[in-house]
């Protein structure tokens, strides 16, 4: 059974049909998706700008991270859930869409960037090299998340 077969079987389930056939379920999911994404990006942006040294310079970066991480993760879970439910409305079309695939790749890159920051950069302590590495982490994160939003918008215009 290929991935396409699996996805079309998924599309035929009564649950997926209910999402695809309703006039209000999809827009409602979109609303929660936008709320969740803006909280994910907004909270991450605060940390990114701190790492870059462009804002919140009077606050230690690790204090900011500790405070905002719960907001980021709860919002990300909601974005993932609502995104997954929207995917069910047209699983085959989304899976074949270049921008949808690009969005998944970008999310993977964001996860890698975050893992490198927490496991490598943060543990090396102060010093010019690690300060530069922290700035790079912040800039990469900021660019990835803007690109994630862009992919989401392009998906809306290109999925038939």
């Amino acid at each position: 059974m290929s991935l396409i077969d699996l996805l079309s079987a998924l599309a035929d389930t009564p649950f997926a049909q209910a999402i695809a056939g309703s006039s209000w379920i999809f827009p409602t999911l979109e609303c929660f998706h936008v709320i969740a994404i803006t909280l994910v990006v907004g909270s991450i942006l605060v940390v990114d700008l701190r790492l870059l040294g462009w804002a919140s310079r009077n606050r230690p970066a690790d204090v900011l991270t500790a405070q905002l991480t719960p907001i980021t993760w709860i919002a990300f879970a909601i974005a993932l859930l609502t995104g997954g439910l929207m995917f069910l409305a047209k699983p085959v079309a989304y899976s074949q869409n270049l921008f949808f695939r690009g969005k998944l790749v970008l999310l993977l890159l964001a996860a890698i960037n975050m893992a490198v920051f927490h496991l490598v950069v943060e543990r090396r302590g102060g010093g010019p090299a690690s300060r530069l590495a922290a700035k790079a982490s912040g800039l990469v994160s900021l660019l990835i998340w803007v690109a994630v939003i862009a992919m989401g918008r392009w998906i809306g215009f290109t999925v038939p």
Binding site: V34, T38, L39, V41, G42, S43, L45, R153
Partner: peptide, 24 residues
Amino acid sequence: AWAVPTIQTLHIFCIAIVFGGAAI
């Protein structure tokens, strides 16, 4: 064709700033 999705991307990014800031 690129204009509207680009403007929407900027629009959503700014919503992230306003709504994220309002949340904090």
